[in-house]
Amino acid sequence: MRKTNGDKIIDGIIVFFMLIVVIVMLYPLWNTLITSFNEARDSIKGSLYLWPRKWTLFNYQSVFKTEKVFNAFLVSVARTVLTMALNVLLSGLLAYVLSRKEFMFRRFLTVFMVMTMYLNAGLIPQYFLYRNLGLIDTFWVYIIPAMVGAFNVVVIRTYINSLPASLVESARIDGASELRIYFSIIFPLCLPVLATVALWVAVGAWNSWFDSFIFAPKQELSTLQYEMMKILSSSMQSGVRQPDYLAASNQTRNMVTPNSLRAAMTIVATVPILVVYPFLQKYFVTVNIGSVKE
């Protein structure tokens, strides 16, 4: 259809509206970015809108030099990488087993697993389970409960089902074991869907804080998100104590404020997501629609 003048005016209005949306979406992050590069004591004066007034990298140095914060960063990285690797490997393996049409327990195991997406005992029974298993206040509480995801298994299994069945058949006739078929045939063929699941799991693990808060409150096991949570709630609520590294740096006038440190931490926590974002984007529609059809 050719566009008339009236159409062009409407286009103009829509473009203007979209520009406002873009600004609203981006500005808060931009504001955080410039705060993170601005001297903390200068930021207190306010009116920091478009560009840093006094450039500094000190806020970032604080993130990586404050032992507790840096440790939290390492824990975040470790849990993300480990959860991602295990979840992809094991969800894929289970998906492969459930994709085998002749497998006698296929239907039972599928229902058994899919049911878990709807069953939820709630927080307190979950807490006691972890306590009885000795997971509370250990690093493994981040990893072990997140090793297999029912939804991920369903997504991967659908993908395996779309592969030609003759691949598995011929490998079996050649006498390959099931694990061997999975690792040398199925796994490489499933890389596109496994990559999607991997990124998905990684974003979830990287962003979570609630499990630190409830299941692993020990300082050594704190994550980047949980440290940000502590700083945020101490600055919003008078009753909550600041993390001690902030209190210490205030005493020595080390030029770091809760807001500036949090700004730098926010950027540190956001950059990895922005890096993987372009890779994720290809699969948005599939995952989004898949989750509705589920």
């Binding site: 955080t32 804080w209 926010t266 994720l280």
Partner: peptide, 14 residues
């Protein structure tokens, strides 16, 4: 894709 902690931090700053 941002965590709720980050989003809440942004909101309280704004």
């Amino acid at each position: 894709f941002l965590s709720w902690i980050i989003v809440c931090g942004l909101v309280s700053t704004i």
